[in-house]
């Protein structure tokens, strides 16, 4: 295999690449897709050119001195010259100081705008857990993608169920930590160019699947299109419309259970919680579950119900690493989960 072949990436399915990163032309910064993106970019370029100037000055002088004053023979006398020059030294103290003040002020001024959401925002409640996003829209509909429409200021009110996360939308210049135990806020107003899809990352390290904790932001043309999508995407048939275990599977996929519980084989399959297939087996065979406090319990409907409602009350042996958030499933949903688990019996 020659080196060139080695450098070729494995084939990539273009479908997997969000459109925001598909352009081939080079650019330093992502495209500006919000009314506030320039607030980040203008000082960026100011600092950039100041840096280029000083870098060229410093390295240029360094190279010039190295060549011009190179020591041709060890017997040369030491170089002569002033050992200090106070006005000069004050000059290169004060000039950088002035530039720093400009940068500070510019950055602060922009930051205030970035940190102050306007009053006419559409509010989206964001809930994160390892390693998934949940966006709850006005009216209560939930989805794992962030949708909005062109020209609408959107305010994200965010909380975390477990560890630190961070919402990061490079095209929007939005980044804010999501801290368990408090709400944090971010906002943006998309421009006409933003129509389409954008990357949304988790930028605060959160463990195993940190790098796959991403989703997309979809910007619709109009509020009507957005509302249409919202109704279509979030109107599920309810538990009344289908067998209970089928509803249970929907919940498994949608509520984040799938991050930590395997539903295919009896082993954990690299996930942190017990496999539901194993649970199903214990449930139907009347097996016992051992806990870290050396107690044990029969795996039955009560046990599963308790595990959903009070996941940290008793930790099953062998699953100390798990971290299940307390849940808000109603009783029908819990019935559905139990029904689904029973269906998974091997």
């Amino acid at each position: 295999m020659n080196l060139f072949n080695l450098l070729q990436a494995p084939p990539v399915d273009l479908q997997d690449i969000p459109p925001g990163v598909r352009e081939t032309s080079f650019s330093w910064l992502p495209p500006q897709m919000t009314t506030t993106a320039h607030i980040v970019d203008s000082p960026f370029w100011f600092v950039f050119w100041v840096c280029v100037f000083f870098f060229v000055l410093i390295v240029g002088l360094m190279m010039y001195f190295v060549i011009k004053y190179r020591r041709r023979d060890e017997s040369e006398p030491p170089g002569e010259g002033a050992t200090h020059n106070t006005p000069l030294e004050v000059a290169w103290t004060v000039i950088p100081l002035l530039l720093a003040v400009v940068m500070f002020y510019w950055g602060l001024d922009g930051y205030v705008a970035l940190a102050t959401p306007p009053s006419n925002c559409y509010e989206v409640n964001v809930t994160t857990q390892k390693w998934s996003w949940n966006f709850r829209y006005e009216g209560g509909a939930e989805h794992d993608e962030l949708h909005t429409w062109v020209g609408q200021p959107v305010k994200l009110i965010m909380r975390s169920q477990d560890v630190l996360h961070c919402v990061d939308i490079p095209d929007f210049r939005v980044k804010m930590d999501i801290v368990p135990g408090r709400y944090t806020v971010a906002w943006f107003e998309t421009t006409q160019d933003a129509l389409g899809e954008h990357r949304l990352y988790c930028a605060e390290y959160c463990g195993q699947d940190h790098s796959s904790m991403k989703t997309k932001v979809v910007v619709h043309q109009t509020r009507e299109e957005f509302e249409e999508w919202l109704v279509e995407a979030t109107t599920y048939p309810g538990p009344a419309d289908m067998p209970l275990h089928v509803w249970g599977k929907q919940l498994y996929l949608r509520k984040g259970c799938a991050s930590c519980h395997n539903n295919e084989t009896e082993d954990q399959d690299g996930k942190q919680g017990p496999s539901w297939v194993e649970t199903a087996k214990l449930l139907t065979e009347g097996g016992m579950r051992e806990f870290t406090d050396d107690t044990s319990a029969k795996v039955d409907e009560n046990y599963i119900n308790e595990s959903i409602m009070l996941p940290k009350k008793r930790i099953a042996k062998g699953y100390e690493k798990g971290n299940m958030p307390g849940n808000t499933l109603n009783s029908i949903d819990r019935d559905a989960i139990i029904a689904y688990i029973k269906m998974l019996r091997p």
Binding site: L29, I39, V40, P43, F44, V47, F48, V50, C51, F54, F55, I58, V59, A100, M103, F104, W106, G107, L108, D109, G110, Y111, A113, L114, C166, D168, P170, R173, V174, K175, A203, E204
Partner: peptide, 21 residues
Amino acid sequence: AIGGLTGLFLGTLSVDIHLHD
């Protein structure tokens, strides 16, 4: 020169929002 100067980007509040992490 590079390491020090690029610190200026990160000290500038609004720019840091984009570059942080």
